[in-house]
Structures are given as C-alpha cells and as structure tokens.
Design a protein around this nucleic acid. Structure first.
Lengths: 217, 217
DNA sequence: CTTGACACCGAACAGGTGTTCATATTATAA
DNA sequence: TTATAATATGAACACCTGTTCGGTGTCAAG
C-alpha cells in the first residue's frame, strides 16, 4: 500500500465529508458532531471534532466555532466557484391605471417575488417589482402584463426613466424625465409619440425604472 | 385599517422569513430560535417558536422538531414546490435590422449568457437570447438594446409572437403571426400601429418570442 | 359582559452540542 | 530502536437550544 501523502484524506475524513454532503442535500442544514460520529461509526465526539478541524485546515469545509451545526462545505459557498448571484425582488401590487403606485407598507403580503441574475440587474436592496395593468403606458413601450422593476425614489434627474403620478390627471405613467425651464417634460420612450409638459407641482415621482420584463405567453 | 385575511403574513412573520432567507444564504445553515428573535427584536424565544409554527402551518417553512437549526425554507426544497431553478440562456449575435437572424452553430461562443429564474420562464433546452440593434422593431414595443429570448421554430401558429425574416424587404421583424386567407397577417404588438399583409413565400419564421427584457440604464 | 382565539412575554427546564483534557495507539522519521 | 507527530478515545464540562408553562393584552363573536 502506498504511503499517505500529507494532502491525502483518511478514509474517515472522506466518509465524514461524504456524509455531510448527503446530509446537507437531504435536510437543508448541516449535521451535528454527534450525528456525524454515529454515521461514520465514531464513538467519541472529540474524534469527529478533530477530523473536522483537519478538514477545515485542508480547505474542504468551513466551521463556525462553538456553534451548533456551524458547518459549510466550501464548494457550496456562493461567493466562490463562479456563482453569478441572484437578486430577489418582491412583487408589489399592480400598477393600475388611474391610481398612484402604493408601495412601502403594502409590500408586505408578497411571498410573490421574482429573481434576476445579477448580470441583468446590479444588486440593490430595496428594489421592487410591479405588474402593469391596463394599456395606459404604451407610450413607454410597456404593455399590459409586463413586469417593471423599480427603485424607490422621490425625485428624478434629467434623463431618468421614472414612474410618475400626475395629480391633475389621476394617472400613473412611465416616462423619461426632463426639467425644461420652469416646467417638466415627460418624454415617452416611444419616439413616435410626443412629450407632454406639466407643472412640477402635479408630478409625484414614485421611483426609477430599472428593468422591464415582458412574458409573451 | 382593513382586517387581515387568513392567508396574510404578519409583519413579524414576514421579517422572520426574510431573516431566515438571508441568514441561510449568508451562512449556509439556518439560524436558531434565539438568533431569529434577536434579529427581529423578539425578546422571548417562545414567541419566535410560535411564529415559526405558524409559518410551518402556512407552508412557508419545514421544521424538524426539537432539533437545533432544524429549519428549511420550502422554496429551497428541490423536490417540492416547483423549485426555482435557473435557466441559462446563451446570447446569440445581435438582431441587426437588414439581416436575417443567424442561429444554430453560431450559438457556441457563449461566454455571454443570461440566467432567468424558472418562475419567469419555463425551462426549455434550446432557448437563445438576442440583443436588439436598431429601432426597426418599435412596432413590437421592442427597442434598441432590448434582450429577446426565443425558441427556435420554423413555423408559427396563429397568435404566436415570432421573429420573421421578410425576404422581399430584407428585414427581420417581431410580430404576431396570423394566417388570413392565402396571405399572412403580421400584427404589431403595439395596438396603435397597423398590421402588414404579406405572401407566405416571403416569410421565414426564425423563432417564437418568449420573453423580452429591457434594461433602462 | 363573557368567552375564546390569537399574539405575546419571561422564566425555567431538560436535553442537545461543541469543547477540553488526560491518555492511549499508530505512523513516520532519525 | 527511539523520538516526534498524527490520530484516536472516553469522560466531563459549560453553554446552547427548543420546549413548556403560567400569565398579559387585544379583538371579535355570542
């Protein structure tokens, strides 16, 4: 039998590693020291602990000291191993033509959420998504059923696409925002349509539009 | 304030759920009752336990009784509840106005790819994505820079949104497809625009559009 | 008002859980 | 061989952890 090199895992350590892996996929959380011991036929918890520390040294897992089930396989760490990462975005109530977008408190019920890979959308904390109802925003090339991902924002800078509540018309609209003299120009995204000019007092900015997703079927 | 319906989650329960989720992705294992309590400002462990049981009842969690960190989010269970996996979709070359969409072999380069959660798009194998160049498809409410996810398809059924190469005009367009008498009606998605009628011989269907994503900034 | 369901609190308990220690056994190198 | 490090053992310990229990307050139905 060939001699063991420094980097080789013992039979036991391999068994422990395998058990942790299968336990993790089976239960969703890591096993305790004693559970490991029982699984690989080790009577003493200290032996398990010893081997766990050995495995940590060799980089096969991470261990949170003095913490029950404080194990983690290095191969499962999101930050490493080229994982892209996803942002979870809660779905708020729909945008309804003729009503302002209500967010904040109303964002509670939702277990509804969508997830987007971070290469599509830079991660940010308080993003939320809205489902568009009605055809009131065709001028922004957004139609019924589309999902709009937004970041809450009370004010807008020139050139940003925002959701605005127009108090004089009682409607929510998606437009590009521009200061122009004393007024505000709201420019539709669809270049075949004309902009509208309104007084700043009637414009309530709801948030900035970051992404639009349309499911065809 | 309106009365809470049966299915509504309490503010606390929502906070607990969120904390478990973030803790899980952060550490790889679930939090303890006390860790949850501290995170959501609950002084008594029994209250946390109470709310956890409530969340279990409503199907948001699984719980292993009398087991430390014996929690699991139902949404993380692979076998159950329509696992929210992700589909990797390669980015083919851009759609250029005036050229047919070339796919097939060219889709190999895929360093570029996007990933979408399966709740946005049912998983399918040979999907591909295209980045739209030019403003030739505004009639489909698709503009420059948009990403179009498609499934390859040589023929179309009535009502499907497809990418079509029009041989007589030398252009690619996104339209709803309808047989109409001996001709084909290509209906823009934007209802303010008129359809065009063409002979079947000049229409080459490239694929069916499943999803459109627009990144604003 | 009374009742019961619901949400919450604080304290205490029993068992779970990682660690430590003294010691024994085995492997590797001199 | 002998020495040194690596590995294994079992018991004891201190803290962690989920549960239980008596009690408080709120709200809607009877």
């Amino acid at each position: 039998m060939p001699r063991k090199k420094k980097k080789t895992l013992t039979k036991r350590q391999k068994a422990i590693l395998d058990f942790i892996r299968s336990f993790l996929t089976e239960n969703g959380f890591p096993p305790t020291v004693r559970e490991i011991g029982e699984a690989v036929s080790i009577s003493s918890t200290s032996v398990v602990s010893y081997n766990l520390n050995r495995l940590v040294e060799r980089g096969h897992l991470l261990r949170e000291k003095e913490l029950s089930r404080g194990l983690r396989l290095t191969s499962d760490i999101p930050s490493l191993s080229s994982r892209v990462g996803f942002t979870r975005i809660p779905m708020a109530g729909p945008i309804v033509a003729g009503e302002p977008v209500e967010i904040g408190e109303s964002v509670f019920d939702e277990e509804d959420a969508i997830e987007l890979s971070n290469d599509l959308l830079a991660h940010h904390d308080d993003l939320f998504a809205l489902k568009v109802r009605g055809d009131s925003m065709i001028d922004a090339m957004v139609s019924d059923g589309d999902i709009v991902v937004m970041r809450p924002q009370k004010e807008a800078r020139d050139g940003e696409m925002i959701a605005a509540w127009l108090t004089d018309r009682d409607e929510t609209t998606l437009k590009y925002f521009y200061h122009e003299g004393g007024r505000i120009r709201l420019q539709p995204a669809n270049p075949t349509m004309d902009p509208i000019f309104v007084d700043p007092s009637v414009v309530q900015v709801q948030g900035k539009v970051l992404l639009v997703v349309r499911q065809i079927n």
